[in-house]
């Protein structure tokens, strides 16, 4: 094993850094707009869409059994209960921006924020 970093290392690390900067820039320029609905999918199948403006509690049932509970409050959606062992979906926090997701891997439940308008810009500088 060599002790010092050489050109090859700096080349690879440079590529890694440039890729990282590009990914972050891409993320900044695609800063999400606020969505108005959430789409709930179970095992890739659409389960339902719910309005973000309306405060409510929805039970998500898989094969007749309530696996996850989705709560919408103050325009934000979050997973308030889940029967999976790790409860990671509950720790994923509240979502309200377009295309933000909460996913519960064990139950295959995915909650995605969607909006009616596509490519919605706050302002355009000319």
């Amino acid at each position: 094993m060599k002790k010092k970093f050489t050109m090859a290392d700096f080349l690879i690390l440079g590529i890694v850094a440039i890729l990282g900067v590009l990914i972050v820039l891409w993320m900044v320029f695609h800063a999400a707009s606020v969505g108005d609905r959430v789409l709930v999918e179970v095992d890739g199948q659409e389960y339902g869409t719910y309005d973000l403006k309306k405060d409510a509690v929805y039970d998500i049932k898989v094969k007749g059994e309530v696996t996850n509970t989705l709560t919408i409050k103050d325009g934000k959606a979050y997973m308030s209960a889940a029967n999976c062992p790790d409860h990671l979906c509950m720790k994923q926090g509240k979502i309200h921006q377009d295309k933000q997701t909460i996913c519960c891997l064990p139950n295959k439940v995915v909650v995605t924020v969607i909006s009616n308008e596509k490519n919605e810009y706050d302002s355009v500088v000319k």
């Binding site: 050489t6 690879i12 690390l13 890739g44 995915v110």
Partner: peptide, 30 residues
């Protein structure tokens, strides 16, 4: 390439995460 062990490990770390996301995209169909 003749790379430093830290360089190899950084690339491994990145692609471990990316690999999991690829499986998640495929498994969740999202």
């Amino acid at each position: 390439m003749n790379l430093h062990i830290i360089t190899i490990s950084i690339c491994g770390g990145i692609f471990h995460n990316i690999g999991q996301i690829i499986v998640a995209v495929w498994a969740m169909d999202n």
